[in-house]
């Protein structure tokens, strides 16, 4: 009897997640009247704006990930090693982007860094790109910090640090050669989440008037019928591809497999 209910719950769960995906995929294939085709996908890929906005968001995602890793890994490491009492404060700070809407953050940025301010970042495309990257890093902070912190929890940070120090290593060597490789899968999870956030982010990019993928998806969704679900399916494929990559890294990294 218990088994029956377990299977029922499982099947209901599968239906809940899979049905919308199947429906959306099916709809994206119905652009040609009366038959299934990949026309919607072809139209999306043929649109130059898709490639421009997608590559723009990809570059910014890369910059956000690099900045996030450089900010979060040393911070989480230092908090774990030297300031464990500061953990609640740091956790609270990293949670703030979840409770402060992106629109509030971006209006704050515009007000602080407009062309008549001391640091007129919005005055140039490069400056605005930098501002947008910082904004993305802020939005991704809760996910990146938690992913890295969870990774750090699986290793004995203090003893490994002391062992490396006793062998003559300085802080940069310790971070680059001991800590980072041992939390690589966690960092990749954080990076993947960051990528997902940046690719789909609309508010900041739209209000800073940058040609990102989010505003393009919104534009397409407002004017077309079949291309938006095709785009959503593409986005899902990218997401699953990233997840597969993380699995691959874990599989080929022997020491990571040992933790499982």
């Amino acid at each position: 009897m218990t088994r029956f209910f377990a299977w029922t719950a499982f099947l209901l769960g599968v239906l809940f997640f899979v049905l919308p995906l199947v429906g959306m995929t099916e709809f994206s294939l119905k652009m040609r009247r009366g038959e299934y085709s990949f026309d919607a996908y072809r139209r999306v890929f043929e649109d130059q704006r898709f490639w421009d906005t997608f590559s723009y968001s990809l570059i910014l995602a890369g910059a956000t990930i690099v900045f996030g890793v450089l900010l979060v890994v040393p911070t989480a490491y230092w908090v774990r090693l030297k300031l464990p009492q500061a953990r609640p404060v740091i956790e609270f700070i990293t949670l703030l982007p979840l409770v402060i809407p992106a629109i509030v953050i971006v209006f704050g940025y515009i007000r602080l860094y407009n062309t008549s301010s001391v640091l007129p970042l919005t005055g140039s495309a490069l400056g605005t790109d930098f501002l947008l990257t910082m904004g993305y890093a802020t939005l991704a902070l809760p996910y990146m910090y938690r992913a890295v912190d969870t990774g750090l929890r699986t290793i004995d940070v203090a003893t490994l640090t002391e062992a490396a120090q006793s062998l003559g290593a300085g802080w940069i060597t310790i971070l680059a050669r001991i800590i980072l490789p041992n939390v690589l899968v966690a960092v990749l999870s954080g990076a993947f989440l960051t990528l997902a956030i940046v690719i789909g982010e609309f508010t900041m990019a739209a209000l800073l008037n940058r040609p990102a993928f989010g505003p393009f998806m919104q534009l397409l969704g407002a004017n077309r019928a079949y291309e938006p679900p095709a785009l959503a399916v593409i986005a899902f494929a990218i997401t699953w591809g990233c997840m597969g990559l993380i699995q691959l890294v874990t599989r080929f990294s022997k020491h990571e497999r040992a933790k499982v």
Partner: peptide, 13 residues
């Protein structure tokens, strides 16, 4: 100095 720890502290990676 060289040091050995109770928890071995070999670098897992």
């Amino acid at each position: 100095i060289g040091m050995m720890f109770q928890a071995y502290a070999l670098f897992p990676n």
